[in-house]
Write a protein that binds this DNA or RNA. Structure first.
Length: 304
DNA sequence: AACCAGGACTCTG
DNA sequence: CAGAGTCCTGGT
């Protein structure tokens, strides 16, 4: 069926949002297993003109599936309104031309988003997406050839590295020990991921986060090991749809400094405060558009 | 082959 | 509270 809400699916999929790795591309379609009200379904979306062509299989109703899809691709966000806002601000006016149809790619699974975001810290897009895919393949459930993200209790019991695996199993050759986090290329983030999983079984309930204000949610998420200010804002934006978050890293700092402060060096935390103050409920989208505008327009190379 | 990029954390002053 | 050093891996 056609979902009448404009989007650029390819751009949204390739935009490196830390909610989850891109879905599997098959011919013109993007496919993934999605949890819909505790039942699994295979979602299949492809671009059809400005809109999405959506199909699914699984024991879920059409209403349930469509509303899940609308959430994941943020299809109820009014892009036209947003583009009016951009064009009314000279610093941002070019951005909609370079990023037309780019939307949030929201996490169907908040836990996956947290682990995926921890993995993204001090890392490249290519590397963290590979790591998350490896984690799914090693410990997720295979559903029609697609792997779910493992549950919290699974990840908190996983081996950190080959040595730990070698010591605690009867594997005879350490070279055969690949059933551990470090073999997914996560490096020193492995203990963060396992400790985070532990935290979610013992103390923190991720289901509470959506009920909180942005400030409360930020305070909670910052307690997760391996999560600092940048990653916390990514989790709140891409994982929980807090659109007032303005995730700020060195690149956003360079871009904001170029666009608004005449190239003057400002601290990342000031950039974050500026973004939240200046853009309000559009902060998350402005951040997303800034990053891709800089990538595509060549501004990023210029700022290096 | 040495060096760098990328955030969070820990230790120091 | 700011600044510096370290963590791991893939890229040059």
């Amino acid at each position: 069926m056609i979902i009448k809400s404009p989007i650029d699916l390819e751009l949204t999929q390739s935009s490196g949002q830390t909610s989850q790795p891109p879905w599997k591309k098959i011919n013109d379609s993007y496919r993934e297993v999605v949890n819909v009200n505790d039942k699994l379904a295979i979602f299949d979306v492809k671009q059809s003109g400005d809109y999405l062509d959506f199909n699914f299989t699984g024991d879920v109703s059409e209403n349930e599936a469509v509303s899940r899809l609308r959430y994941i691709y943020d299809l109820d966000f009014d892009l036209d309104e947003f583009y009016k806002y951009l064009s009314n601000h000279s610093e941002l006016a070019d951005m909609s031309d370079f990023c037309n149809g780019l939307r949030l790619f929201l996490a169907p699974d908040p836990f996956e988003c947290v682990i995926s975001s921890i993995c993204s810290a001090n890392n490249s897009i290519k590397r963290w997406t590979k790591s998350v895919s490896d984690i799914k393949q090693k410990w997720g459930d295979n559903y029609n050839g697609f792997y779910t993200f493992p549950g919290i209790s699974t990840l908190q019991n996983v081996f950190l590295d080959d040595e730990e695996e070698f010591d605690l199993t009867n594997e005879e050759d350490i070279c055969m020990c690949k059933n551990n986090l470090k073999s997914c290329g996560v490096g020193y983030r492995a203990p963060y991921m396992r400790k985070a999983s532990e935290l979610f079984t013992l103390e923190m309930d991720l289901l509470e986060i959506p009920k909180m204000t942005y400030e409360e949610a930020l305070e909670s998420i910052l307690k997760v090991p391996g999560v600092g200010p940048k990653v916390a804002d990514c989790i709140l934006l891409y994982g929980f749809n807090f659109k007032e978050a303005f995730p700020s890293d060195v690149w956003i700092k360079r871009i904001v400094s170029y666009l608004y402060f005449d190239g003057k060096d400002i601290s990342v935390s000031k950039v974050r405060e500026f973004g939240m103050e200046e853009f309000g409920d559009y902060a998350g989208y402005v951040q997303l558009y800034m990053f891709h505008y800089a990538r595509k327009s060549g501004l990023m190379d210029k700022l290096k």
